[in-house]
Amino acid sequence: MNVTRGFTGRPRAHRPGLPPGQYDAGDDWPVLSAEVTPDLAPADWTFRVDGLVAAPRTWDWDEAHALPESAYEGDIHCVTSWSKFGVRFAGVSLDAFLAAVRPDAAATHAVAYAHTGYTTNLPLADLTGGRAWIVWEYDDKPLAAEHGGPARLLVPHLYFWKSAKWIAGLRLLDHDEPGFWEQNGYHGRGNPWEEQRYAGD
């Protein structure tokens, strides 16, 4: 252990929900997108699921809102070391979209892409089973543009760069393809509980 002389750190408040190497950001919600925040109105937003599916489909704002509402209440974790507790997002479970397109048995991974062209790759298993959402509300208010509004992907059990802002679609694949940060040295899966921050972790 490489102890830093004179460093004591914050009081060790016991936080069972805090993954290793993370700190509680409290009320802060840092914005870290690498691109210009797009000027995207709900009326111009669409979400498409295609690739290895039986029935590729695009939803517009109203069609997506006609699906059963589903909310996430819990924590989120950013690779830059902040975690945020007790957030509430509302939208639709990704399971509802996937049920409509019927993924092929061969589909194992997905690339999520944004209206800005941002991409991130995920195992399909991380997007199913009630663990991923398309969300448009935060704390009962419309999701702010800088946080990915009008709608973003939410995969809260992985580092938050996987939760693509300004979500435009998912392409289902039978193999893994690195997305934007993954091509820039970040980990392929990004599980905060295993501290999968960078490739090789």
Partner: peptide, 21 residues
């Protein structure tokens, strides 16, 4: 994968994963 949307800024360089780890 290249998305069918206007593309965000591409990376500039290849990154050494060994150094980062």
């Amino acid at each position: 994968f290249t998305p069918p949307t206007r593309f965000a800024v591409p990376g500039r360089i290849a990154v050494s994963n060994r150094a980062a780890a």
